[in-house]
Design a protein around this nucleic acid. Sequence first.
DNA 1: TTAAATTCCTGTAAGC
DNA 2: TGCTTACAGGAATTTA
Length: 274
Amino acid sequence: MPELPEVETLARDLAPRLVGRSMAAVQLRRSSVLRYPDPEAFAARLLGRRIEGVGRRGKYLLHRLEGGELLVLHLGMSGQWRWGLPSEPEPTHLHLVLDLDDGGQLRYRDPRRFGRVLLGTEAELVAARCLPRLGPEPLDPTFTPALLQRRLAGRRAPLKAVLLDQRVVAGIGNIYADEACFVARLRPDRAAGSLGRAAIARLHAGLRQVLEAGIRSRGTSIADYRDAWGEIGHGQERLLVYGRAGEPCPRCGRPLASQRLAGRTTVFCRFCQR
DNA sequence: TTAAATTCCTGTAAGC
DNA sequence: TGCTTACAGGAATTTA
């Protein structure tokens, strides 16, 4: 499940390989992964265009192109964006292939097809309702405990549900939400707006801690996530609660509980998280 | 405005 | 062994 650390790893790995390269050929195998614009305009606008930068916003991977347009990928649950050579065997569920001017190739593979591809200026994509108004970046220096407090103020939905809302904070998914709540010793089912100053400070620190650890681990590979070279990340070796329902709590040793919140499986400790 | 439910997809694993 | 069923989940969309 590509969340902020997984997409950040992709962006950092791909930037030195892609910056300065241009698009030599475009093969859209399954047009439904392209959400904007239509396939003809997509190929016409992409062909020959040079990549000036690779970055990330929330869970979106951004390729900045000459002329100010962005090639945007959201990997959904099972999307993979891999660099390789055209001679390598093709995987199943291959939806988009981009040949580069140095002989390299970018391949978008996505078995479950929850991912999406976009091309356009940021303003154009927002106007077309293809890019939502994302909340602040949790690793940005401007993301302070005071800002987090403002984002959660007045919210009566469960903390977990609000953390997953990309308009509140960008980039957090099910794995890192559970991990952050555990590190911050906060029950994921308490009302998001009920957190006091100390709890906010713990949540702010917890979010940063688990996201930075995720990046250092080169992402978390539960099922489908792979980096740009096809390698797995190692964050799953360090998970404290995600996927560990029934196992002993790493802090108090009592069994971890599982509950469905905001439509997602949520694992936490009933005793250490308040 | 907010919150909850529904929908899209397919690989995997559990159950019979 | 082979079939059916439940489950995994990000976010757009719909409903309340």
